[in-house]
Amino acid sequence: MYNLYIMQSTQALVRTQIYLTQTQQKRLAAVCRRSAVTKSELIRRAVDQFLDQQAPADAANKAQRLSGIVGMWAQRDDVADPAAYVRALRAPRF
């Protein structure tokens, strides 16, 4: 039965397991009954909706995000010499 459903899909499906809380499981089951859609389909739709809301990772977007962190440690006096700071962090391990 499930093989037939998966094989009739317009796109190749990849099996994925997730853990849901009992509350999430009950709420999802209720929505499935109301909408006559499988849990898998509802989860795929939710994943698509989430991914559609994410900002594109183009070069301009990355540059804009990086420019926002320029100088964020400028007022710190404990990192005046970055190389010495890194050596001190690594000293206990090496």
Rank of each mutant, 00 (worst) to 15 (best):
Q53N: 09
D81A: 05
Q49P: 01
T38M: 07
A60G: 09
R27G: 00
A36Q: 14
Q8V: 03
A59C: 01
M1E: 06
G68I: 07
Q54P: 02
V86Q: 05
I43A: 00
M1L: 08
K62V: 14
K39Y: 04
V37P: 02
S9D: 06
L51T: 01
L66V: 03
W73A: 14
Y85K: 04
D52K: 13
R33F: 10
D77A: 15
N61H: 09
T23Y: 11
A30I: 01
A57K: 01
M7R: 02
F50I: 05
P56H: 05
Q25G: 00
P82M: 14
Y19T: 15
A74F: 06
R44M: 08
P92A: 14
V31L: 13
L42A: 06
L4W: 13
L42T: 00
S35F: 04
K62Y: 07
D52I: 02
T23P: 00
A55C: 01
M7F: 01
L20C: 06
L42R: 06
R76W: 02
A83S: 12
I6Y: 02
A88L: 07
G68A: 15
M7K: 08
Q64V: 11
A29Q: 04
D58Q: 09
V14L: 02
M1P: 13
Q49C: 05
N61G: 01
A91C: 05
L66P: 05
V31G: 06
W73T: 15
A63F: 03
A83M: 05
S9M: 12
L4A: 10
Q25H: 10
T10Y: 10
F50V: 02
R65F: 09
